[in-house]
């Protein structure tokens, strides 16, 4: 049960974030504050979709760079900022797979991001940690056999614990469509799991 104090606190937090987004539309420093809030969430969402640390890092980079590029067009009344970030990330993942694994970003950038000894070790450790999540990897292996439209609703619903209403906002689809995709996605996954 949400108390009155908690309700006010959530409203304040939303207002605070709305103000931050408005500032971020004109200030890179303000955008960096938003980045700090959402980086972890977006990176782990992408990681759950692609199950590859380096690829998840690259798509995360693209997601935030595009968000920075397009933030002036963002309107709070349409969708919450977090949903907007998830939407960009989803589009980038789908775009990557649509191009069947073509280079996502320039080789120059990959070199820039990868050759850095300062976090190359970190990436190795993250990959080792990912490999320890065997159950997730087995599930992902089966999920990856499904079309992207099913993968994204299943990951958002069961891995990201998003409500149907939130998924509707993230994907920009109707509620009935989302439910239908979820239902059919689960059926297909069930077949793959058999």
């Amino acid at each position: 049960m949400i108390t009155r104090t908690e309700t006010i606190s959530v409203a304040d937090a939303l207002k605070e974030e709305e103000d931050l987004v408005k500032r971020a539309q004109h200030s890179r420093e303000a955008f960096a504050e938003l980045y700090e809030i959402y980086y972890q969430r977006i990176f782990n969402y992408i990681l759950k979709r692609v199950a590859n640390v380096q690829l998840a890092l690259d798509i995360t980079s693209i997601t935030f760079l595009k968000a920075l590029d397009q933030i002036k067009k963002f309107r709070w009344r349409d969708i919450p900022f977090s949903a907007w970030l998830y939407r960009i990330a989803s589009n980038e993942i789908n775009d990557y797979y649509r191009r069947e694994g073509n280079r996502l970003i320039s080789m120059e950038m990959l070199a820039e991001m990868s050759d850095t000894t300062d976090y190359a070790e970190e990436i190795n450790e993250a990959e080792e940690e990912l490999n320890r999540h065997e159950e997730f990897l087995r599930l992902h292996e089966k999920l990856a056999e499904l079309p992207q439209m099913y993968q994204e609703v299943i990951v958002l619903k069961y891995f990201e614990k998003k409500k149907i209403g939130d998924i509707v906002k993230i994907l920009g689809k109707k509620e009935g469509t989302v439910k239908s995709l979820l239902h059919r996605g689960l059926e297909k996954l069930r077949e793959k799991m058999a």
Binding site: F43, L47, L57, L65, T116, E122, F136
Partner: peptide
């Protein structure tokens, strides 16, 4: 109930932040 990876690569996070700013 699947145990999901929640990872963090601090180096990338800092590098990307720097690039954005």
């Amino acid at each position: 109930q699947a145990k999901l990876p929640e990872l963090e690569v601090v180096g990338h996070r800092c590098r990307l932040r720097q690039m954005l700013i």
